[in-house]
Structure formats: structure tokens, C-alpha cells
């Protein structure tokens, strides 16, 4: 885990996330969000969780970001731009960031370097998913099915 890679990825990610939160045009913000997700996937690769990084790229950039773009295209007849900015939200966000950073820096037990761990193979993840985590896995499958049906029911045409 090198320091230079960490600095580059964090600047990239935070700049893209800030652009996603503050850009006026909705489409630009959605694309910046996808770029920020690439940065977070790079963090996961840096931390040695390659499988989760790939899953993030597939699910978030392949599905969620495309879904957001589709929704923008379906609903943009009136609101191409987002006017108005609530400045009290900025104050709250800065206060939350200050509080979190202060408590993280004050906690001495968090200033540790990563221990040497064996590489996490996909085989180990698969074995864990199929043995100890099989019950949560089935519940997530049920939840995804329910969410799919619920989303379909929500956007169905209203009968008149």
C-alpha cells in the first residue's frame, strides 16, 4: 500500500464527489458520481478487496449510474438545471465533517498500519458465502426480488 497511490486516488475521488454534489446540470453531476465510484473502487483495490471493487464497478457504475441517467432523461422536461442552493445544508455538512475528523484524529488506537494478511481469494469469499453466510444470501435474494417487484408496481400506469 503506497502513500502516493493513496494521495492520488483520494484527491481524484473527493474532487469527483464534490463535483457530483455541486454541479448545476444534473447529467454532469450523475457522470461525476460515476467517476467518484471509480475512485472508490480503486480504494478497494488498494485495500486488497479486489472482489468488492469489481462488484462495485459492476453494480454501481453498470447498473445504478445508468439507472440514474435513465431517470434524468425520463424526467427532465421541466428541470434541466437545479436552481437554488440551501446553504444551511453546507454548514451542517461541514460541522459533521469537523466532528468526525476531530474524533478520528483524537482516537489513538486508530493510528495503526495494516498488518500482513494473506490475499483474499474469490474461492474463500465463495466458500464463506455458501457456508456461514448462506442465510443472509438467501434473504438478500428475496429482498432484491421484492425491490424489483416493488419498483415495477410503483412505476405502473395508474388505472383511471
Amino acid at each position: 500500500m503506497s502513500s502516493a497511490a493513496f494521495v492520488i486516488i483520494s484527491i481524484f475521488t473527493l474532487a469527483a464527489a464534490l463535483a457530483a454534489a455541486t454541479l448545476r446540470k444534473l447529467m454532469h453531476a450523475a457522470l461525476s458520481f460515476a467517476v467518484a465510484l471509480v475512485g472508490i473502487a480503486a480504494f478497494f483495490f488498494l485495500l486488497g478487496a479486489e472482489f468488492v471493487g469489481l462488484a462495485l464497478v459492476f453494480i454501481y457504475i453498470g447498473a445504478v449510474a445508468v439507472l440514474i441517467v435513465f431517470t434524468i432523461l425520463l424526467t427532465r422536461r421541466h428541470a434541466g438545471k437545479d436552481r437554488g442552493f440551501n446553504w444551511s445544508g453546507v454548514a451542517i455538512a461541514v460541522a459533521v465533517f469537523g466532528g468526525l475528523t476531530w474524533s478520528i484524529v483524537k482516537t489513538q488506537s486508530l493510528s495503526i498500519v495494516a498488518p500482513h494478511v494473506p490475499a483474499l481469494t474469490v474461492k474463500r469469499i465463495g466458500q464463506a458465502l455458501m457456508t456461514s453466510y448462506v442465510w443472509p444470501l438467501q434473504c438478500v435474494g428475496l429482498l432484491l426480488t421484492a425491490a424489483l417487484i416493488g419498483a415495477l408496481v410503483l412505476v405502473m400506469e395508474e388505472k383511471r
Binding site: A17, A21, A30
Partner: peptide, 17 residues
């Protein structure tokens, strides 16, 4: 990153933001 997300959720008026 969490604070930037909070900023987007609190200060924008558009539901997709």
C-alpha cells in the same frame, strides 16, 4: 465522502441529487 453526500442530500432541491 460522507459529508459530501450529506451536503448533496441536504442542500439540493432535486430528488435525483
Amino acid at each position: 465522502l460522507f459529508s459530501i453526500g450529506l451536503l448533496a442530500a441536504l442542500s439540493r432541491r432535486h430528488a435525483i441529487f
